[in-house]
Each structure stands twice: as C-alpha cells, then as structure tokens.
Simulated assay, not measured.
Amino acid sequence: MEDTATLHRPEATAYRHVYEFHVRFGDIDSQMHVNNVKFLGYLEDARLAMFHADPVRAGLAPVRGMVVSRHEIDYKVPLSGVIHPIRVETWVTELRAASFKIAYEVRDADNLYATATSTLVAFDVENARLRRYTPEERAYIARFLKPADA
C-alpha cells in the first residue's frame, strides 16, 4: 500500500491538509503499539507532502528552505497495528514574515491518536542563515491558515 497525500480537503475543514498513510510493521514496538518517535516521522512526511510534493504535483513551486525550531506533541491513545489508513491533518495557526506555526492531528475516523504543533522558520541554505518567506511562499502557506472564526 502506498502513502497518499492530497490537497483535497473536506468542505468543513477547507484549510486543512490531509496526508494518509498505513502503519508499517516496523513502526510497532515491543509493547505492540506505534513507538512515539515514529509519530515525528509521520508529521515530517505530512509536512513534506504539504509543502513539497503537493505543490509540485499541482505545477507550483515548493516551499524550500524551512527548518523546524520547535515540536510539541501530546499522545492521546495508543496507535496499534491497524490495517486501515491513518491520516495526519495539518493546518497553519500563525504566519509571520520568517516563521509560521502548524498544528496536527494524527487520527482515523474513530480515534485521535496525537496532537502536535511545530514552529518552522525560513532558512537560506546557501548562506546558512535565517531569511524571510517570499510573497509566493507566504501565499501558499496562507492557504492553510485557520480562519479566526473556525
């Protein structure tokens, strides 16, 4: 089974990016649930789909040169070796000139397994220093900004 990501979002949560995946056997630890460190990998996969793969598939330029400056994660219920798809729903909660914050839910139709937040900063890879997001990058990131009334 192949991981999938899509820009298609349900009407009620039009600002959310949805990334679906299947739990792999190697993600399960000796306690028979997904090891907590694997959740950070799921969040990374969702971000890569959201800011690189999906824009490229849509014929847009990807958002490049971002680094994570902070992660925070809360585990809600154990995630075991389920066979149905799990999804990471991601949205932007704050957008600034050189950074933004995103929130995540790792879930399926019945369970919320974890919630998380990350702060990402724009980074100039060639010059090894912080930078500001370009207007095009800000416009792409802003499409996932949670409306104030949502």
Rank of each mutant, 00 (worst) to 15 (best):
A128S: 12
I86Y: 04
L130F: 09
F100D: 04
R129Y: 00
R131C: 10
R131Q: 12
T90P: 07
D110E: 15
V125T: 11
E94C: 07
L95R: 09
P135H: 06
R96W: 05
D110Y: 08
Y113M: 08
N111A: 08
A128P: 00
I83A: 14
N111C: 05
A109Q: 15
Y133K: 03
E89N: 13
F123P: 00
E136A: 15
V92Y: 01
D110W: 04
S99Y: 12
L120C: 10
S99N: 09
F123T: 02
L130D: 06
Y104H: 15
R107W: 04
D124L: 04
L130H: 12
S118L: 00
L112G: 02
L112K: 05
N127H: 14
R129T: 11
N127W: 00
T115M: 10
V92M: 04
T93H: 00
Y113E: 08
D110R: 14
L112W: 06
F100I: 08
W91P: 01
V121W: 02
A122H: 05
N127L: 09
R96V: 05
N111W: 08
E89A: 14
V125K: 05
I102T: 05
V88P: 02
A98Q: 12
E136M: 11
A103Y: 06
A116T: 07
R107F: 00
A114W: 03
L95S: 07
E94H: 11
D124H: 08
L130K: 11
A109D: 15
T117P: 00
I102S: 01
H84C: 02
A128W: 03
L120D: 01
V125S: 00
Y113I: 10
A122T: 03
A114T: 08
W91Q: 04
W91Y: 11
T115Q: 09
V92I: 15
E94D: 14
N127G: 05
N127K: 13
N111G: 00
A109N: 14
D110F: 08
A109M: 07
S118E: 11
T119K: 11
R87S: 13
A98K: 12
A97P: 01
A139P: 02
A139K: 14
E137V: 08
R87P: 01
R131F: 06
R107K: 15
T134M: 09
E105R: 14
T93P: 01
T134I: 11
L130V: 07
V121T: 13
T93G: 11
I86L: 14
R138K: 15
A109I: 00
R96Q: 14
E94G: 07
E126I: 05
A122R: 11
D110P: 02
T119V: 15
R129D: 03
E105W: 06
I83V: 12
A122Y: 01
V106E: 02
E89Y: 06
A98I: 07
A114N: 04
P135E: 08
A109F: 10
T119M: 10
E126Y: 00
E105I: 03
R131E: 02
P135S: 09
R107Q: 08
E94I: 02
D110K: 15
F123H: 10
Y133I: 02
N111K: 14
D110T: 13
S99W: 10
P135T: 09
E94Q: 13
A98H: 11
